[in-house]
Design a protein around this nucleic acid. Structure first.
Length: 370
RNA sequence: UGGGGUGUAGCCAAGCGGUAAGGCACACGAUUUUGAUUCGUGCAUGCGUUGGUUCAAAUCCAGCCACCCCAG
């Protein structure tokens, strides 16, 4: 690819990673354009509009590098394609992952289209992962920095989306990126990594959800004894495996260990818990739908691979069977803790000890089998 | 009313004369582009209350209060 004749639009968030991406591309000679997105127009918990600060950082960094930059607003698309689904899932008692959708529906949707419309040959983002082209197919490869690997969030990307993207920092490690940013004296160099839902940011989660999903008091019940232990303010505010926020204190029976959410009965508004790391927390298989396969549907209906059931979990050995309806049964070699409907099961060709593996795609966990 | 028992942080709970363990909950922080998990730190100048004994009392003694159980 001839860098000089290639226009790359970089999604700049105002963080270190995308700052360095823009810098590296420019340095390599690409015709580089920075594009900032503002997809959430509400103020944060402390009443600050963080996106304004982020855009200020984008301006500073882009100016320093010497590239043009723009800002665009996809708040409506975010609302329609990501946030509404997010709420619908929570209302159904599941635990969605909005950031996976955000990638598929926004960054690799309207953002990509807009980039094309202003002449982009490629887009680039600050994700820690790699894309590899072999025989006309695009593979999503794990990041070299295993600790930061973000392929989990990109499991829903299709071939046409992957064909358009560059991940310039996938071959680097986070410390290296920080070092480059410091050397270049970017205002983002020592900025804390952003967390929380992409574009929405860190929130007191339950309070945030309460703005959209009304509270509904119900009982917290011991799954083993059926005893009512305490009360909750809405089953949808809790997720499986959760410990914090239950408010169940000491009791004169039991082991004195913490209590964890193990089941939710949305219809009857009951939150089931057990004390300690009990077997109720560990499942042996799950059914996954909304599957996307990278680079294409596996030729074998049944195969062994590795999987993560949530971000930052180490890859686990599993056996996958693709059903005729397109869903898949995933059988765990070892029991897994708190596998939760609504989250994504993401497949990998290698375990956690080999970062030269590929993300094979993934789908939404629909049912969990104990 | 008589007899017995118990009163230690929001909840459990050690301590049994020597200057308040621990767990759960909670708060904050670290980690984290979901939600969680995990990790770290904090959390009773005071042990129902009032007196007494003692160099020293949550611990011993007495009165009072509250709650529980058994009798009536």
């Amino acid at each position: 690819m001839d860098a000089k004749n290639t226009t790359v639009v970089v999604g700049m968030s105002g963080g270190v990673d995308s700052s360095v991406v823009a810098y590296l591309l420019k340095k390599q000679g690409y015709n580089t354009i920075g594009l900032f997105m503002n997809n959430w127009e509400e103020k944060d918990d402390s009443g600050c509009c963080t996106s304004a600060d982020d855009y200020a950082d984008v301006r500073r960094v882009a100016s320093k590098i010497g590239i043009p930059y723009y800002s665009i607003n996809f708040a409506k698309e975010y609302q329609d394609k990501v946030f509404s689904e997010f709420l619908a899932e929570y209302k159904a008692g599941r635990t969605p992952n909005p950031d996976v959708l955000c990638n598929r529906e926004i960054k690799f949707g309207p953002f990509l289209n807009f980039a094309k419309s202003i002449g982009a040959d490629k887009i680039a983002t600050g994700h820690y992962c790699r894309v590899e082209e072999k025989e006309g197919l695009f593979y999503l490869k794990k990041a070299k920095d295993q600790n930061k690997d973000q392929t989990y969030f990109l499991n829903q990307l299709n071939q046409s989306q992957l064909s358009m993207v560059m991940f310039p920092i996938g071959e680097e490690t986070k410390p290296t990126i920080r070092k480059i940013a410091i050397e270049q004296d970017f205002s983002t160099a020592t900025k804390k990594d952003s967390t929380g839902i992409c574009f929405i940011g860190e929130r007191k989660f339950k309070e945030f959800l309460k703005n959209y999903i009304p509270a509904s008091t119900g009982n917290i019940v011991d799954k083993r004894t059926n005893e009512i232990l305490w009360h909750h303010d809405g089953v949808m505010y809790y997720t499986l495996g959760q410990r914090k926020g239950l408010g169940i204190g000491g009791r004169n029976v039991g082991t004195g260990e913490s209590w964890f959410v193990v089941d939710k009965d949305v219809k009857n508004n009951i939150l089931y818990v057990t004390q300690g790391e009990g077997s109720e927390l560990y499942s042996s298989a799950c059914v996954v739908n909304s599957l996307n396969w990278i680079p294409r549907i596996p030729t074998e209906k049944t195969f062994d691979c590795f999987a993560k059931f949530r971000y930052r979990q180490l890859e686990q050995a599993v056996s996958v069977h693709i059903n005729d309806d397109g869903s898949a049964n995933v059988i765990f070699k070892e029991k897994q803790r708190a596998v939760t409907p609504g989250q994504y099961a993401v497949f990998y060709s290698t375990g956690h000890d080999d970062y030269n593996g590929y993300c094979l795609g993934g789908g939404v966990i629909d049912k969990v089998i104990f």
